[in-house]
Simulated assay, not measured.
Amino acid sequence: MTIRITLLTRSYADEVLAVYQAGIDEGNATFETTAPTWAEFDAAKLPDHRFAAVDERGKLLGWIAATRVSDRCAYAGVVEHSVYVHTAARGRGVAGHLLAALVESTEAAGIWTIQSGIFPENTASLAVHARAGFRLIGTRERIGRHHGVWRDVVLLERRSPVLQ
């Protein structure tokens, strides 16, 4: 399978939201219960730090996008990201390619930290993030309720070795 990384644009909206909803439905990807509209998604994600992985036919395999963690100037170089892979494309390196693209774009923009909160049950995501250079910061215990159940979230970060 050929994996091509491209900017995530509106042309992928329906596929992005479908992959997002599939991740939501599985129960270990996010506290969200429904995917946002494209307008909400588009407004929340930084336009220079969102990418689509597509196959040779242009079909979406997965996506990654970043948001600011704070408007405070001290956190100008810190983003939080989400990465989702189509169920049929898992185990093929898609998330690794997307994380590499995000690291490249954020470092070029002077962003020194990428963080992510991952449910501890999502072992595949934890493993791909570790391979991409993310380190464990800690576990936020019982940080939120998800379908009536308190859930922990593992906080990971990748500090740029280039931007110190």
Rank of each mutant, 00 (worst) to 15 (best):
T33S: 09
G93E: 12
A22G: 08
N122I: 03
V162I: 14
R50W: 08
K59N: 15
R145T: 14
L46S: 03
V154W: 00
Q115C: 14
G96L: 05
G110T: 08
G148C: 07
A18S: 14
R72I: 12
L61F: 04
A39I: 02
P161G: 13
T9N: 11
F31A: 03
I143Y: 02
I5D: 05
Y20Q: 05
E157L: 01
S11M: 11
R142M: 10
W63S: 07
H49F: 14
I137L: 15
A89H: 06
P47N: 03
N28I: 13
Y12L: 07
A43G: 07
A88L: 10
S116R: 02
E40Y: 01
R151T: 05
L155A: 13
T139S: 02
L46G: 02
A74F: 11
Q115M: 14
A130E: 15
L7F: 06
L102W: 09
D55C: 03
H147F: 08
K59S: 14
E104C: 06
L17V: 07
A130R: 14
F119S: 00
E104M: 02
F41P: 02
L99H: 08
A65I: 06
V94P: 03
A44L: 11
V69K: 06
T2M: 12
T37D: 09
R57N: 15
Y75K: 01
W112G: 11
V19R: 01
D25R: 10
A74D: 13
A130S: 12
L156P: 01
G77N: 10
N28C: 07
R10S: 14
V83I: 13
V69P: 00
R92L: 15
R57D: 15
R159T: 15
D48F: 00
G110I: 04
M1C: 02
F134E: 05
R92D: 12
F31G: 01
T106V: 08
G77F: 01
R10Q: 15
R90N: 10
E141V: 12
E80Y: 05
P120T: 09
A29W: 03
A52P: 09
G96R: 04
R158I: 13
R131W: 07
Q164E: 14
S82G: 12
R90D: 13
A13L: 08
T139H: 06
R142H: 13
A124V: 09
